[in-house]
Computed example of a mutant assay.
Amino acid sequence: MAALDKRALDPAPGKAHVAEGPWPVRLTVAFTLLYMSIHVYWAVGGTWGVPLAAQQNADAVRNANWVVSVIMLIGAAWVLALHHRFARRVSAWVVLTPLWGGAVICVSHAVFGFVTKSLYLAGVHDAVDFPKAAGVDATTLAHDHHVSAVRDLWLFEPSFLIQGLLLALVGWQFIRTAAARRTWSLSLLLGIAAVDVFGLLLSLGNMHVALG
């Protein structure tokens, strides 16, 4: 991403610009806040969408979702700031690195989740290492895992994908030159591939990660 320097971001040095068109920024902020609402719901004790095993550790679930909610709120504010002139008066790395990280994490999570949850529903149950719930019979637990996998495929993984693509879009829009935009897109693809390959290697080594 070395090409993403200050000159690459602004083809007319010395002139301050706002982002070209506010709708991607506003859409990303709106979606982030909407997606954050489910984490706030879990943080205040909601149980819909929470697997049985996680419900047995309610305090940890609430605390984790408060942290995620705060991170998403900060992220929404960060994206909103892209529409202001001062965003172009600081280092490009400062502005773009959080967007890059968020886009890579969200999209790679979605890709890996789509693959592993689809495999699970196809009968390859080792594809996902769902946590065990104490005191729950095998039939009930198997049903809960099935429901979780289906719910992830139609709701949560698509949400991760949309969030990641929106972050990638606002970062791409913030950049002004074609060469720097190509560098941005390529770096995202490489980052996503690296994360998913790492996840695959963990799975092959029987070190599964529960997604969802």
Rank of each mutant, 00 (worst) to 15 (best):
V18L: 09
A19W: 00
A19C: 05
A19K: 10
E20F: 02
G21I: 05
V25L: 09
R26L: 08
T28N: 07
T28V: 03
V29N: 14
A30W: 06
A30K: 01
F31S: 08
F31K: 03
Y35Q: 08
V40I: 11
V40R: 09
W42D: 03
V44M: 14
W48S: 15
Q56H: 11
A60V: 05
A60F: 15
V61L: 13
N63C: 06
V68Y: 04
I71Y: 09
I71L: 15
M72C: 09
A76M: 10
A77K: 05
L80A: 11
A81Q: 15
L82I: 06
L82F: 08
H83E: 15
A87F: 02
V90T: 13
V90K: 02
W93A: 13
V95H: 07
L96D: 11
L99Y: 00
L99T: 05
W100L: 13
W100A: 14
A103S: 14
V104E: 01
V107E: 00
V107M: 03
G113H: 00
G113D: 02
G113C: 04
K117L: 05
L119Y: 07
Y120N: 04
L121F: 01
G123C: 05
V124A: 12
D126S: 14
A127D: 01
A127T: 07
V128W: 03
D129H: 06
D129E: 14
F130I: 10
A134F: 10
V136L: 04
